[in-house]
Amino acid sequence: MNIFRLAGDMTHLASVLVLLLKIHTIKSCAGVSLKTQELYVIVFATRYLDIFTSFVSIYNSLMKLIFLGSSFSIVWYMRYHKAVHRTYDREQDTFRHWFLMLPCILLALLIHEKFTFFEVMWTFSLYLEAVAILPQLVLLQRTRNIDNLTGQYIFLLGGYRGFYILNWIYRYFTEPHYVHWITWISGLVQTLLYADFFYYYFLSWKNNKKLQLPA
């Protein structure tokens, strides 16, 4: 564990907490894409299939449980909690899951490190995570008005990806045989998807203005 990996995990954790805070205390999920949240449930469920079979550390197992539990509870809140569900932008959040999942399934079957069930599922989760934010970015683009918590949520998620890239660079130079092209390329694609959002986030921060995306 290096400082970049820890910073990445902590920003990831913070992003989830910010979203839960918004949903749990303000009872609002306005501007939050249920499609993206459901894709994250699938990402974590397929990636952490090994939670009972491979043990790395208490830290890892605990974080896996937190990410699984929080993503499930966010989707539960948005679907079944009456007050929260009322605030959901259903008409705007129209992205189709299969449009993203199908190419990821095919790609995972074609390109993987090992052709085993767990490994293909793990690889699928990497590909899907790379594009899971797209419905959220489309929703932002459509609603344009972004409240502070939603903006911070996406900013922290993007930060998590950025720190993971630094972690890979660090591990590549400090650990022998640490080469994982699939993880790196899908991670890089994922981070690049945030670039546009980051640009406008920093612009609004610099000018001390409310974040607003161009039409």
Partner: peptide
């Protein structure tokens, strides 16, 4: 899985 370093990440 020590043979696959990416699996110790989240």
């Amino acid at each position: 899985d020590s043979a696959n370093g990416s699996h110790d990440e989240l």
